[in-house]
Design a protein around this nucleic acid. Structure first.
Lengths: 153, 153
DNA sequence: TGAAGTTAGTTAGCATAGCTAACTATATTA
DNA sequence: TAATATAGTTAGCTATGCTAACTAACTTCA
């Protein structure tokens, strides 16, 4: 019981405080932006999976599940929904009959890009009050965090 | 059709680019951190509502729904779940019989703080690779974004 | 004062999204 | 070729979001 927060070294508590604020801010930011996606008619999980396909090329179901950090049964239903909406096309792997290749249809690409446009423009419009210096600061720290994510265990 | 992105002024495209990266980074960051919350046995919506109560004091159901940007029926079920787990206590408003006052129990405060500790420590541990300057940069831009959120339309 | 309207919250019913356990079908290996 | 491993699906649970329709309580005002 001797290792309380207040006894940690200053760097560690600074990290803790930043992590706390960062976490809370990210949650609230996404909660706002997410509402823009309702217009697409597809849920967040489907849009996110579709985005992986559009920007990362065709994937098997297992690859998609791994990319989205979700279990295969969950991705199975997400892909089924996307296929039902004709946003992805599924073909069998000629080498391995168990595998499927999932790729976006033109309709899927279009829907994703339009939704992305809406969402990002909405977010961007709220960044309009920032000074160029503040915007640059946000941009730099976003890249720092993106690097942290790439090196995530 | 003449107002394409490529014809917008430089400041506007800078905002757009930052918004895009920010959005994607926030999504992936939260997806990682969220897994730590599973240990608490409560879902994200309940933990988030409980957090509002712990840090913001007692609220009515409507106030909680507004704070969480969710419709009343949704919050009704979230609160019912928290009450079932004995994490909040519900009392009638003596002034207005329609209203309820929702407040965290000691058990609720404890669970939230422990979960928060776990989650934030996990996130903080991944910020350990940052230099003090980088950490400061992230801290500053987080505050900039928090301000943007406060002024959100 | 009492009928009409407003407000707070609930109930019912739908869809999405996450999970585990148990299954099928195909490949691989001993 | 028989046993095992891998890819994906199905079934069934929980949680979270919504709208529509409801109940109960408060407010207004003729």
């Amino acid at each position: 019981m001797s290792k309380k927060i207040t006894r940690q070294d200053p760097e560690s508590s600074a990290r803790f405080a930043v992590a706390d604020r960062l976490h809370s801010t990210a949650i609230h930011l996404l909660r706002r932006v997410r509402k823009q996606d309702v217009a697409s008619g597809e849920g967040p999980a489907r849009l996110s999976a579709l985005s992986v396909l559009v920007f990362g090329g065709p994937k098997t179901l297992g690859e998609l599940a791994a990319a989205e950090q979700v279990k295969p049964p969950t991705m199975s239903r997400i892909v089924a929904g996307l296929a039902r909406s004709k946003l992805v096309q599924i073909t069998a792997d000629p080498q391995d009959g168990r595998r499927m290749s999932i790729r976006p249809t033109p309709k899927g690409v279009k829907l994703l890009q339009e939704g992305r446009q809406r969402r990002i423009e909405y977010l961007a419009s709220h960044l309009a009050g920032l000074t160029p210096a503040e915007l640059a600061q946000v941009a730099e720290s976003t890249e720092i965090l993106a690097r942290v994510l790439r090196n995530w265990a």
